[in-house]
Design a protein around this nucleic acid. Structure first.
Length: 156
DNA sequence: GCCAACGTTGGC
DNA sequence: GCCAACGTTGGC
């Protein structure tokens, strides 16, 4: 198992939870992910200290707005057990939780938004398979390479 | 608000 | 196991 730090991109709708919200609270359990691929990345791939690009989706100017770090190992998402939560999952139980998450800690806000529009223009540099610009891009958590991470931040 | 893309569900 | 129906994501 490599101890090398990994890099990720995580999307959030700013109306629900923005980079400013993360700055205010400092650390946040990344709850509500209900996609198996995204869950697997959190549960199986993330390690404390990994770096995260924080992306605002479903908003006027979608793009990367800040950075964060992984602040915990994976553990069950409490909201799956809460009947009153939007994220309640009747098929999950304490004995067999379905959904796991990690805590995400604020690192910094970017001086400006690196807009999806500009990121698309860098398709050749990033690689056509880069998940953010691939057709039908819907995954909310996915890995980026160290090179993609530093390149994207260099656009700031 | 629209709608394409795509993941999930459930009948068969 | 197939696949139509349905729900959600997310850019525009």
């Amino acid at each position: 198992m490599s101890k090398r730090r990994r890099y990720w991109l995580m999307k959030s709708e700013p109306d629900a939870f923005s980079i400013d919200d993360l700055e205010r609270v400092g650390t946040e359990p990344w709850n509500g992910v209900r996609n198996y691929q995204a869950r697997n990345f959190m549960r199986d791939g993330m390690k404390i200290g990994d770096k995260v690009l924080f992306y605002h989706s479903n908003t006027k100017v979608p793009g990367i707005v800040g950075t964060a770090t992984v602040a915990s190992g994976a553990y069950p998402d409490e909201t799956q057990f809460d009947r009153k939560s939007d994220y309640y999952d009747p098929k999950a139980s304490r004995e067999e939780p379905r959904w796991h998450l990690v805590d995400i800690a604020f690192e910094r806000k970017l001086s400006r938004t690196i807009r999806l529009e500009e990121i698309k223009q860098q398709a050749e540099r990033l690689g056509e398979e880069f998940a953010l610009i691939r057709r039908g891009n819907r995954l909310s958590v996915f890995p980026v390479s160290a090179d993609q991470y530093s390149f994207l931040l260099s656009l700031e």
